[in-house]
Computed example of a mutant assay.
Amino acid sequence: MNRPSRPVRVLAPALAAGSLLTVVACANDGGASDTVSVSPAAERSPSPSATPALTRAGAKAALITAADLEDDWTQANDAASWRNKLLIDKVDVAAFLRTKTNAAECQRLLDSLYSDSLLGRASGGSALAGFTDPHARLLYQVGDYGRDAMTKTLDWLRSLPKKCNQFTATGSDGGKRTVQVVAAKLPAAGDAREGVTVTLRGTANGEPTTLTLDVAALRVGASGAAVTNGGPRGAQHTSTEAAVREGARRLTDVLAGKTPTGNPSEFD
């Protein structure tokens, strides 16, 4: 399978910088207001709910390893250059009779899968790691994207099985493909998570072809992670679930100032 070739940009989900809160309490009593002052030390103390920013070093420590995945995966050294030409497709807008806006959402899905930019641009530290087995590739990205951006991405993923349940697209070689998007069940991990399975069937260079990808995203605080996993023989759902579960655990540990158990992935 010809997989994405993307510039070495460590791309990943987002953990927004934790904010320092200044507490001012005001009480209204017959038009009068009282200000409750706090000590300078208290003003400098972070709120219990504030989350620290994910640094570059923290993002690398939060990467999953081959040991975190089920089945026989090997860490790759060229994941930052992966690209899959089967995902260079133009959605058939004319087929979306009454919901043309849905065509744009489906195009966004294909484009983000090709460019490995499912979560957009990280606003802070980020990192990625890739793993291969004989028939599939798994890409894991983690980073600081901001809570609002992560929430919007998860909402978008949740909408895709309805908006893009099945549609047609034309490949760069002129071949027609049918794309199907269905919801995927994920383990309860992190603060929120969403997943879909994307199956592309059609022709490539005149030959029948099928590509199946598990696509998942998770959020911990304001940081997030994305998983894409699959190939021409399907996607190993147990490996996707393991990546989400262990990725959320590692990210949670890093954000809490702990060192995740197991060796962090060695990838720049």
Rank of each mutant, 00 (worst) to 15 (best):
N229W: 12
D68G: 05
R177E: 08
A17W: 09
V24C: 11
T151M: 07
D34F: 11
A80I: 10
G175H: 10
L251W: 04
G58R: 00
W82S: 12
Q141V: 02
T252A: 10
A226C: 09
Q180S: 15
V215Y: 05
G120Y: 10
A122G: 11
I64R: 02
A243M: 02
G231L: 11
A188G: 03
L251Y: 07
V93A: 11
S19V: 13
A149P: 04
A17N: 04
V24Q: 08
D68W: 01
G190W: 00
Q107P: 12
A57P: 06
D116F: 03
A189V: 05
T238A: 15
P46I: 08
V196F: 04
D214C: 11
P46C: 04
V38I: 14
C164F: 00
F267R: 14
D155H: 10
N28Y: 13
T99K: 15
L113N: 09
T210M: 04
S19W: 05
V244I: 09
R108Q: 10
A136R: 11
A248V: 00
L87Y: 06
R83K: 07
L186W: 00
L87K: 02
A61K: 03
L251P: 01
G30L: 05
D268P: 03
D268I: 06
F96V: 09
R219Q: 08
R177M: 11
R245S: 08
K85R: 08
D268N: 07
D71W: 14
Q75E: 12
L128Y: 01
S49A: 15
M150E: 15
H237P: 07
G30H: 09
A59W: 00
R250M: 05
D71E: 14
R201G: 12
A61Q: 06
L200V: 15
A53V: 06
T99F: 12
L213Q: 11
T209C: 06
T210W: 03
T55G: 13
P232D: 14
V244Y: 02
T209M: 15
L109S: 08
T238P: 02
T35P: 07
A122P: 13
A248I: 01
A103L: 08
A127N: 15
V254T: 10
G224V: 04
S112I: 09
S39K: 09
R98D: 07
G120C: 14
G206I: 04
K100N: 10
T252M: 01
D155L: 12
A225N: 02
T228M: 05
A17L: 14
R108H: 15
G257R: 10
E43A: 14
L86V: 12
A61G: 00
A127K: 11
P40L: 10
D111L: 13
S37H: 13
T240M: 05
P40S: 12
R6A: 06
V93R: 08
E194S: 11
